[in-house]
Write a protein that binds this DNA or RNA. Structure first.
Length: 296
DNA sequence: AGCGGGACCTGTGGGC
DNA sequence: TGCCCACAGGTCCCGC
């Protein structure tokens, strides 16, 4: 297998649940069964402070790559046994944050300007290759961990349920407090995986004002909001899945996904429902676009 | 206690 | 054309 161009497994900024899900699925196809032969950290701040050293990954293999919230998780299994279990990672977690990307490259490819971590990998009886973690804005983190270490990570321990696995009965009680409902959706300890884009899109679809206090939503509104979140996330995952099927090259297409936003990035433009002007405001310091007519 | 907002970063793009 | 600066936002951290 040869990659003359890097295989960019996600190109957009702001990866949320659907994007991370897409990366996990496409990475899993490449990485499952592959052995970590070498690991280099090119920028120390890319390693989570609680992480085991990246060298502890060497000799482990990836069973699969999956998603939890906005985290990519490589499930690992040991090569030959006999390790000290305290210092042995059973997973590699990657948070792409804003600009993180995973790239599959040739064995001989040189790191780029923004490459933060390099893993040399090989599937039995196949050619070696490299996995790069690139991150221009350096917000992203990699984290080699086992269950014991993960339990010390507050973010992990407090991570809320997956929105696609939630029932109305479980979701509605989560909408507590007087803070804006949008703040609630962005709080990863309430639900895991929703970011600024899908919070705005879901609230528009549900017809709910993002500034409404979370505890002011009726059960009917809460249920409608969950339906909207699930419809949009599922639709986005399907959409990403189709646009990523032949992969995006380094200077390649952005796909059509962003053309499907109803409100995100459309401040001042026309609301598709009522024809009025979409308004922009700040909630939690995050830009928020909504329709003051359609969202009550 | 719970919420709001600044810091962290750097590439991008709009305005002059 | 080129420069400058505001803007983008997930999470941590601090202050009210």
């Amino acid at each position: 297998m040869s990659f003359r161009r890097p295989l960019v497994l996600w190109k957009f900024t702001m990866p949320e649940c659907p994007e991370v899900e897409t990366v996990a699925r496409s990475l899993s196809a490449h990485i499952s069964g592959c052995l970590f032969e070498r690991a280099s950290l090119l920028r120390s701040s890319a390693l989570h402070p609680l992480s085991l050293p990246l060298e502890t990954l060497i000799g482990r293999s990836a069973r699969a790559v999956r998603r939890r919230g906005k985290l990519l998780i490589f499930d690992l299994f040991p090569g030959s046994g006999g390790e000290d279990s305290d210092r042995t990672p059973d997973s590699l977690l990657v948070h792409l944050r804003m600009t993180g990307r995973m790239l599959v490259r040739d064995a001989g490819a040189a790191p780029g300007k923004h490459t933060r971590c390099v893993w040399s990998m090989r599937k039995p009886d196949a050619s070696p290759f490299q996995l790069f973690f690139d991150d221009a804005r350096t917000f992203g983190k990699v984290f080699a961990a086992n269950q014991e270490i993960l339990e010390k990570w507050d973010f992990w321990r407090n991570l809320g349920p997956e929105p696609l696995e939630l029932s109305r009965e479980a979701f509605i009680p989560l909408l507590r407090g007087q803070r804006p409902i949008k703040s609630c959706l962005l709080d990863q300890s309430v639900v895991a995986g929703i970011g600024n884009i899908y919070a705005d899109e879901s609230l528009f679809r549900a017809g709910i004002d993002p500034a409404r206090p979370a505890d002011s939503l009726s059960a009917e509104e809460g249920g409608r909001l969950l339906d909207s979140i699930q419809e949009i996330l599922k639709w986005a995952i399907e959409n990403k899945g189709s646009s990523i099927r032949d992969y995006l090259d380094a200077d390649g297409n952005k796909g059509s996904f962003q053309n499907n936003f109803s409100v995100y990035g459309r401040a001042g433009k026309t609301c598709f429902k009522c024809g009025g002007e979409l308004q922009k405001l700040k909630i939690n310091g995050r830009s928020t676009v909504h329709c003051p007519v359609c969202q009550k």
